[in-house]
Amino acid sequence: MAAEAIAANGVLAPPRRFPVTRRLFRHRLFVTGLILFGSMLFLAVAADWIAPHNPMRMQFRMRFRPPGEGFLFGTDNFGRDIFSRLCFGARLSLGIGFAVVIVNGVFGTAIGLIAGYFRRADEWLMRVMDALMAFPAVLLALAIAAALGPSAANAVIALSVVYIPRTARIVRATVLVVREMDYVQAARAFGGRDLWIIFRHILPNSLAPLIVQLTFIFAYAVLAESILSFLGVGPPPPTPTWGNMIAEGKDYIREAWWIAMFPGLAICLTVLGLNLLGDGLRDVLDPRLKVQQG
């Protein structure tokens, strides 16, 4: 693919304006991921227009309708339309995932920058991160969410906290490399202030691995949120989250498999899409990371 790009551009041709975007759109898996994630995002954003029924409306005469016959994905044990709940569930599940990316990104980056740049803070900050990493992420998130109480906001807090060490470590590792670069040394020699150096030089040059990492965190967060909801410490029912819908379908799995199946498929497609996006971004933005990460 690289050879192709050179041949197409010609070695001496002036550089294209968006070489990274071009390379991304030639990356087949990235595009697949974009389509998968994009369609789930479309369900979430357009839920008000495309959902054929009110997601909360119970119709007891319509309980356990199989897929088809006026209900695309069937109805659940309260006679609610599963496709409509799936669309509104996308809004909440993706919304929680995105909020986790933001909260986790801000705090993880801050901790990583401080630990990587200021030697004195490094030691104990990283010990705290090690301690947080010592717990299985999902178990710790369940414990925090259970203590704070079941709600969307608390799910965001719990998931952001448990994934902070991963983000902080990635940022710290890149900062350790970047801070030794000549241009940082030069900025320091010219008497640049620490904060200015961090925001002008270090942060922009640490962005690539950070973006890759946050894409994967998005995937983890969607997956883990479904577990919180499934075990009853996410946003409480009757709120439609994908995990809640599967939990409700679990009790009727023998008679009405469709209640649990469709929201699960939605989770699979979303997480698969995000993982593909992450892999694609990593290949294009940051090839060095390719082997280290699973």
Binding site: W257, A260, N275
Partner: peptide, 22 residues
């Protein structure tokens, strides 16, 4: 392998029950 890391395990468990159990 990519699919394996993207499937929620509790959902897979339910689907296996439907297929092999029911």
């Amino acid at each position: 392998a990519m699919l394996g890391v993207s499937v929620p395990s509790f959902w897979l468990a339910l689907m296996l029950i439907v297929l092999f159990g029911v």
